[in-house]
Design a protein around this nucleic acid. Structure first.
Lengths: 244, 244
DNA sequence: GAGTGGTCTAGACCACCAA
DNA sequence: TGGTGGTCTAGACCACTCA
């Protein structure tokens, strides 16, 4: 079997434009929240028609890398205004009501990658990482315990003071202070008995069932930049997801 | 506040075309698996340009209502070939390996809707339903117990014999035998202690943590046509979902 | 080779927003 | 009022499938 046959021999123009745009995003030429050049300007810059640029931008917009706003322009997507985002936090009150949540930091400390963290973050075992433990409170009740592991190289300087001073989501902190923009993630869910230490923090019985949510989040170039294990108390709230 | 202001006063042409296409799908003018008329034919039928039809079809294709196949045509999406679909069944081996699963029917019987089923299916309490209990086995191991409730009106005649004779997924049965095509669903996940009866079937300890997956599935006109509560044994397999 | 979807263009006009 | 994205058109040509 000829391997070459499996490689797409043909890349449409808009796909190439898309790749160029992603490069500009990844390199930081346009920063989160900023407006990118207009479609007509990009078209003339790349020597293609506006329709071709448009199709490239369309796809990046559906991928949530760009945000279009009619009459204003096209902007680099940002986590800056994430407060009650449905995108990366899927826990919802069972009755569907909206409520704000808050965060309480437990610990933030440098550490070294164990075998599991190393595999998930695709770094060498024993290399530097930053570990964060925190609680998320919904309507004052602690419902989620998160254990977050970040590669030390990209996040050097991250400490408890920085987190506690930050107003906003974790991902907006990563984006603003460290230039790491997480754009997609994969979650693996299991049901587990509550470990004793976590049960105490979530005010539930030890060994009562918790939803364990293991997440790996990726940045522009598909490099994993966060590994996270969450324990969710689902007594009053549900993890909601759509299939379509 | 004037309510009219909230109603979009303007509907783009391709949106109207899209609605017309959905009507044809919902009415059964084109059946699952069949080819719909070509873009140029639809364009002349509706009196618009091919590009406008194209945009409408594009959106229906990303919604998984239609399937485009270059050089062949555009087809109505179907569950007919669902075997290891990643779309509605998200349980995966922890190591990511692919494996086939099989189903074992426990019970299929007519019943009446309780308050919960009635609310979920938007039917009157006490109206006829069909209840199904079954196990899903992965590599021979029973990992999922499903309790499925269907509105009796649309599924009259569904019985154990029909299910056991059927080769293929539940949704392909619904589609082929009852003309009910489920196109999207919402799942609510919680962690629960295994009820005794289910623990026996999933060969796990009573009260050991299970992942409870409650699903409501909808057909073309957003009418709920299935309510399902699954209990997943996640000891060796994970419920996998993407955030992007 | 005929028919299908896929790409690309050039240009017109509309809807929205900010100054 | 000018600039932005959003829609729509008409037509050319390319890539793919199948008879």
């Amino acid at each position: 079997m000829n391997v070459k046959l499996a490689i797409p021999s043909y890349q449409p123009l808009y796909g190439q434009i898309k790749a160029l745009l992603v490069n500009s995003l990844a390199s930081g030429e346009w920063k989160p929240g900023e407006m990118i050049p207009s479609e007509v300007e990009l078209a003339s810059r790349f020597g293609v028609s506006q329709g071709t640029v448009r199709k490239a931008i369309d796809e990046l917009a559906t991928d949530n890398l760009l945000m279009r706003r009619q009459g204003r322009g096209t902007f680099v997507a940002t986590h800056a205004n994430d407060t009650n985002t449905t995108r990366f936090l899927r826990l919802r009150a069972a009755d569907g009501s909206e409520e704000s949540h808050s965060s309480r930091l437990i610990r933030c400390a440098p550490s070294v990658a164990g075998p599991r963290a190393a595999a998930m973050l695709q770094i060498a075992e024993g290399s530097a990482v930053v570990e964060i433990d925190r609680l998320l409170l919904f309507a004052g009740e602690p419902l989620i315990h998160d254990h977050i592991v970040l590669p030390g190289e990209a996040f050097s300087g991250l400490d408890a003071a920085a987190i506690e001073a930050w107003e906003g989501s974790m991902y907006s902190l990563f984006e603003t202070r460290f230039g790491v923009r997480l754009i997609r993630a994969v979650e693996h869910l299991t049901a587990v008995p509550a470990p004793e230490s976590i049960a105490a923090l979530l005010t539930c019985r030890p060994d009562s069932p918790l939803l364990a949510v293991e997440r790996v989040a990726y940045t522009y170039d598909d490099a994993p930049m966060e590994w996270r294990v969450g324990h969710y108390n689902t007594a009053t709230h549900h993890y909601v997801t759509a299939l379509d």
